[in-house]
Simulated assay, not measured.
Amino acid sequence: MADKRSASGGMVEMSESVKFTHADWKAEAVRRFGSDPMGWKFVCPSCGHVASVKDWKDAGAPEGAVAFSCIGRYTGAGDDKTFRRAGGPCNYAGGGLFGLNPVQVEFDEGKVQAVFAFADADVAVEVQA
């Protein structure tokens, strides 16, 4: 499982709720996947499906859906895979009744957005193959 240094310097698993500043979140994405945001990958907390920013764009999802709602919402996925942790994509939305998005990103103006965790780098490579 991927990890990150917490503010206290200890390691935390990405599956735990983690808070980043927007700048630190972007830096972590670059470290994992490179400077092109289209290649950044995230894992849906409901079904486990891994998707890149490019995948959301290609599916016609609005920018605000990236790492917030499963790509399945934009590809016609049904309810049958939601909350199953396998076999996605699903139609989970981060703004719904069940807020599963494990990462909190704090923007300069103080707004905090809950988003999907980054996919592990090895998962991201595996999905590309």
Rank of each mutant, 00 (worst) to 15 (best):
107 F>W: 10
24 D>H: 13
40 W>Y: 01
84 R>S: 11
35 S>Y: 10
41 K>H: 12
82 T>H: 06
98 F>H: 14
111 K>E: 15
95 G>I: 09
25 W>H: 11
78 G>D: 05
19 K>H: 11
69 S>E: 08
106 E>P: 12
42 F>R: 03
101 N>I: 08
86 A>K: 13
25 W>I: 00
56 W>N: 04
45 P>M: 02
55 D>H: 05
59 A>T: 01
58 D>A: 03
43 V>C: 15
79 D>G: 13
43 V>W: 08
35 S>D: 14
64 G>V: 08
48 G>D: 03
98 F>E: 15
108 D>V: 13
69 S>M: 07
56 W>S: 02
72 G>M: 00
22 H>V: 11
64 G>R: 12
88 G>R: 06
107 F>Q: 13
100 L>S: 04
36 D>H: 06
31 R>T: 11
65 A>Y: 01
113 Q>D: 12
19 K>M: 12
49 H>R: 11
57 K>S: 12
30 V>P: 09
103 V>F: 10
41 K>T: 10
89 P>W: 02
62 P>Q: 05
40 W>E: 04
71 I>A: 08
66 V>E: 05
112 V>Y: 12
107 F>I: 07
43 V>Y: 08
42 F>S: 00
49 H>W: 14
89 P>I: 07
116 F>H: 07
45 P>T: 01
72 G>Q: 00
95 G>Y: 10
54 K>F: 04
85 R>W: 09
98 F>Q: 11
73 R>I: 10
110 G>T: 02
